[in-house]
Amino acid sequence: MPPPAPTATDTPEGPDTPDGPTDPTGPGARPAPAALAAPRARPARPLPVPRMTALAQLRAGRKRRRVPQLLLGLVGYGAAVMTLVDSGCGAASWSVLTEGVAHTLGVSFGWATNLIAVTVLLAWIPLRELPGLGTVLNVALIGVSADATALVLPRPHGPLAGTGYLVLGLVALAFFDALYLGAQFGPGPRDGLMTGLVRLTRRPVAAVRTAIEVTVAATGWLLGGAVGPGTVLIAFGLGPLLARFLPLVAVRLPPPAATEAASAADAADSMDSMDAARTGDVPEPPGPTGPRPHTEPVA
């Protein structure tokens, strides 16, 4: 008589349970819970202002929006600078540096401004930053706009009004800075330092701009420049505000390949039209798709 077949209680693996067999490698075993994946670090957002030559900036599309945006941004930038100056709560970081350089070298404020601008432009060379129309107009329009604003802007009376000028000037400075940068005609000397470092370090705009503002203010203070509460607020607040505004106002440009292809197609169509007009040939209109019907020759 053959021995009885082993039951579930006789198997060496042990009895089956409602949750399945106890052998974790068996065919009916449940997979082990997956380990919690480590959170991925968010990559830094790319700078919404691509690096272009001056010729590429002029050849890029959407100039009907970009040119007015550039001019409005630069004029508003100058007005915001003068609003901060009239607040009386402390100069901006670059003004502190200019004052410190003028005090150390024994030169005027204007000469110190020009010396700093030349030094910053030389720093563009290792950063491979490229100038453009915005670079030239930055130098030409911001000072004129600031002087014009000083003629019409009333002086604040009391600390409350000065604080209001400080907050208004800071927000306006960040917005108009982003507005002219977003037109994509090239940055000014100081903004080019920021855009070049952002592309080189791949760090966020807010972090790079804040590091620049704090470093510039601290250097100017060490050289003898005056620092106030507004200086600290501008140094730590301008970068985050600029990073918030810049993606919102940056003009989206068509890809260079598409622009060049469209230009080449337009040029080819123009040449075909000129050839046809010169030879008198009229192009046949496009007929229906498919094979032509077979026609018998007429006897």
Rank of each mutant, 00 (worst) to 15 (best):
L97K: 06
Q57W: 06
L130E: 00
G76Q: 08
A54G: 04
V118K: 07
C89M: 14
V49N: 02
W94M: 11
A60H: 06
R66C: 01
T113S: 13
W94K: 06
R128N: 14
V85Y: 14
G76D: 00
P46S: 11
T83P: 00
R62V: 09
K63M: 15
I116S: 11
Q69S: 02
L47C: 03
G76I: 08
P46M: 10
V49G: 02
A123E: 03
Q69H: 06
R64V: 07
V67M: 14
G76A: 10
V81H: 09
A112V: 04
R65N: 11
L97A: 05
G132F: 06
V107D: 01
S87W: 04
Y77R: 07
H103N: 11
D86K: 15
I116Q: 15
A102E: 06
V67S: 02
L121W: 10
A117C: 11
A60R: 12
V81D: 01
L84S: 02
P50V: 00
L115M: 12
R59I: 11
V75S: 09
T83A: 04
R51P: 04
I125Q: 09
R51Y: 06
C89Y: 11
L105K: 07
V49I: 15
V118Y: 07
G110Q: 13
V85C: 09
E129V: 04
E129R: 11
T104Q: 13
Q57D: 01
A92H: 08
R128A: 12
V96H: 04
V67I: 15
D86N: 10
V120F: 12
L58I: 08
V81K: 08
W124N: 04
V101K: 08
M52W: 05
G76C: 13
A117F: 15
T104L: 13
V96K: 05
L105M: 13
T53Q: 05
L84H: 04
G110T: 04
T53F: 03
A91E: 00
M82E: 10
L55Y: 11
R45Q: 07
L115H: 05
A80Q: 00
G61A: 07
L115R: 07
V118R: 07
V107Y: 08
A91S: 03
R66N: 00
P48I: 14
G61Y: 08
R51H: 09
V81W: 12
I116Y: 12
A112D: 01
S87M: 02
N114A: 15
T113N: 13
R64G: 13
V101P: 03
V81G: 01
R59P: 07
G100H: 03
G78R: 10
P48R: 14
R62F: 09
P48K: 13
V67W: 15
L133C: 03
V96R: 05
A117D: 03
R65F: 14
L84P: 03
G76N: 06
R64M: 11
Q57E: 03
V67N: 05
T98N: 15
H103W: 06
P50W: 02
T119H: 07
A56T: 05
G61C: 04
A102Q: 10
P48C: 11
D86A: 12
V85N: 09
R65Q: 15
L97W: 05
G61L: 10
N114H: 14
R51K: 13
L97T: 02
